[in-house]
Each structure stands twice: as C-alpha cells, then as structure tokens.
Write a protein that binds this DNA or RNA. Structure first.
Lengths: 226, 226
DNA sequence: CTAATAGTGTCTATAAGACAATATTCC
DNA sequence: GGAATATTGTCTTATAGACACTATTAG
C-alpha cells in the first residue's frame, strides 16, 4: 500500500455520576498490546471487512467493550502522528464521543470499567487525556446551543433534572425561569401527559421526553439554551 | 497489518469571489488514478515518512496543489467506508477546511484550478460534495461566533469589508451599527493607525488588522458576532 | 453643492436574569 | 401548618436591531 498507517477508533463515553461529567475508562486486557494493564479509552481497529464506516467501528467498540447500543454517538476528531503510540508507529485514531445515562452504563458495565470525573483525571496512556479534553470541549460548546445534555438522562426526565444535566456539563448554575423559557423556544421536549415524578419532600415534577425528531438528531437554537 | 485501509487527506479550500463563498476544485491529472480528468477537491495520501500529523498532510497538499502556506487551516471531519472510492476499497479521508484571501489564491493558482461558488456545485466525484457541504456548514456555524471570516480577507481590511465577508459566509445582511458594536466586544481587531482606504466616491474607511493572538487562533464570543 | 459610503448616536423591541409569588406534595 | 421544591409571573437590565444623523471624500 501507499503507507503504513494503523487506523483505530477511540470512544470517549461520557455520563453523569453525582452530577459530575465523567468518562468511562477500561483496563487494557491484552498482554501483547501497548499500555497493558493501564486504564484508557475503549478503542479498536477499523475492520474493513465488517465496518461500513468509522461510526460503525465506534458502535462496535461500544458494544464489545461496554455492551451498549442505541446511545448518542458522534464523530469527534482525528488524532494522528508517528509518536502517539510508540509501539505501533504512525497511527490515526478517529475519536468519537458518546453520551449515555448512568443507568444504562451501570447495567452494562463489566468489572474492568470505571467512571472518572473529567475534572479528576490522572495521566493516561497515549494522548487519551488530550482526546478527552477535546471531547469535553466539544460537548460543552454544543450543549450551550442544543438539546445534547438530554442524552445524559433516561428517556423520560423532569425539567429540573434536565437543568442539572446542563449545569453539570457547562459547569455553572443557570436561572430556572430563563431556562424554562428557552427550553420552550427550543421546542424539543414534550410532556408525558399525566406522568409526574417526586423526589423527596416537594411538589412532583412533570415528566418530559424528547420529541421524536430529536431523539436521533439534536435540536438547536441560535441564541443558547442556557 | 490489521487492516487494508487507504488513508488520505482532502482539503476544502474556501475563498470569496465577488462576495460569494467559493471552493477550489482541481482537475485530476494522474491517468492511473480514479476520476481522472474530473474536477475534485485537492487531496493526497498520508505519508508516514514525512508527515507528523494529518494537519501536516493537509499543509503539504495545500502547498503541492495550490502553492499556499501560512493560511487558516483546521481539521473538519473524517469520511470513510468501503464504497466512497470504488477503485481503492475501504478508504478514510480526513477532510480539512482552509480559508484564504482571493489575492493569495490568484497569485498561486496554476492552470488546473477553478473556483466555484458553493451554491452552484454540480456533481463531483466520490463524496466530495458531501465533504464541501460539511465544510460550509462548519464555517457558517463557527463564523457566527468568531473572527473566522477575517481569514477570507487580506491581513489588512476595513470594517465594511469584514462585514461583507460575514454576510457572504452567513448568507444574510446584518445591521452595521450592531455589527460594529459586537466587533468591539469581540476585541479581536486593532486599527492600523493613520491608514485609511477609499473605494469609489465615499469617505475613506479606517484600516484594521487582527490582533496578534487572533492571527493563529480564533477570537470567540458567546453571543454571536452578527 | 451632490453622491456615496463611513461611522456614530439614539430609540425601540426583544431577550435574559433576578426574584417574588403561588402550587403541590408529605409529614 | 411547615418544609421542600416545582412552576409561573413580573420587574429590571442587557442586548439587538432600526434608523436617523453626521463626517469625509471626489467631482
């Protein structure tokens, strides 16, 4: 071939743990692979025989490593160069970012996974820390103008829960009155009629879900959701 | 190796022609390559011996095909799959987008290049039309909140010229008073003292340039520049 | 002077944020 | 009733857009 390039896909799988944006790290199992035993992003080779695209590869990785499917997933960015994986030479990783509600991770998770707050990351093998930082930056930017944080919650959620998700991603508190106004403008969620949910000692909150068009595609607003 | 994947980089080179956002297409020269003779995006194989990253490859492509260097360039997105290049099997193209002032293209351009308005694109080989659409969408989104369109102009420009660039990219007219106010907030340009420029029968306009930090990095505003 | 566009100032409409007021639940 | 939080409403401030006004040049 024209070049000797190792093509992989890495996935930054994000979820909320105690209202903190956290990333899933997996302990590398294969003794023949670099960084064996260390905690790193889940990833895998692009397999030209079975993958139709890098998105396919990312979906396969999510299924194989975390038992997850049908969750929010988008391509992030490629990371490349001769030095990023010292054992494999010139590598190209097409990084992806996925969002998942914690309940789904908990059900699927096997022993070798852990969730770490993105603000508490120690050093990681390869350039995985840089990849995570890029993923978090992307999610922050996109969340400010879209329905993205809803994908950190279960299919049905209340508005206060959604606001917590926005605040966790964006790292600051917002005005609840303004938040509701803008959510209404965004027109991305609908009430599940009659369904309410109560936590603790308070009035029960109306349950909402994403409107159908926005379950696979983000709703966006030019002026910011928060 | 683990897979048979052809890795290339394609570049969407954008400029303004008569205030219309236009893309540079090159006639494919090599008779042994697919789509020979057709107009397509400039691209090239990643060369693991000489490129330090895909950004390097993109810079090399810009230099080799268009004689350009030192212009605004960022990674866009990867396009991949077994079908996108029928002759080469599973290919992965890491698309990049570059902005350049028309004067620079004109100086560098060789015979086999043409500039086509992104609104007047005929069919193109491979998935190049899809790549261009993604590039234009990215540039639109980013322009609304940053100093990006300044990179479509020469180093020194007037505010009315800059407004034209924003309007060309975003496809709509804006209020000049509001535009100036927000430009001031963005705090990305500085007057070149004493320098004025006059076009036609009118008052001469003050000449500005990007402040140093924003020549290599975009200035951003959370609330939109236009 | 007029034509033409640069650049500024001001008024109005819209959007955001602060915060008070009300509603609903369990105890 | 009281605690706690959901939800709505209102007032104030900030921002955006419309538009008029002034400034500067060539002829």
């Amino acid at each position: 071939m024209h070049n000797q390039i190792t093509c992989v896909v890495d996935v930054v799988l994000l979820t909320l743990v105690d209202s903190k944006l956290s990333v899933a790290l997996f302990q590398r199992q294969n003794p023949n692979e670099p960084a064996h035993g260390q905690w790193a992003l889940p990833g895998g080779f692009i397999r030209d025989k079975i993958d139709e695209s890098v998105l396919d590869t990312a979906q396969r990785v999510l299924m194989e490593k975390a038992g997850l499917e049908g969750i929010y997933l988008e391509q992030l960015q490629s990371f490349s160069g001769p030095e990023r994986d010292p054992d494999r030479g010139w590598t190209l990783s097409v990084a992806h970012v996925a969002l998942v509600p914690l309940e789904q991770v908990s059900k699927a998770s096997r022993g070798e996974m852990k969730l770490v707050s993105v603000n508490a990351l120690r050093s990681l093998p390869f350039d995985h820390k840089e990849i995570i930082n890029a993923a978090v930056a992307r999610v922050r930017t996109k969340s400010a103008y879209s329905s993205l944080p809803a994908h950190l919650l279960a299919d049905e959620f209340t508005i206060p829960e959604l606001q917590v998700a926005y605040e966790a991603v964006l790292g600051q508190a917002y005005n609840s009155s303004s938040f509701r106004r803008k959510l209404k403008d965004l027109d991305a969620i609908e009430a599940v009629s009659g369904q309410k949910k109560q936590v603790g000692l308070s009035a029960p909150a109306q349950i909402y879900r994403l409107k159908k068009p926005f379950r696979n595609q983000l709703a966006t607003r030019s002026r910011g959701v928060v």
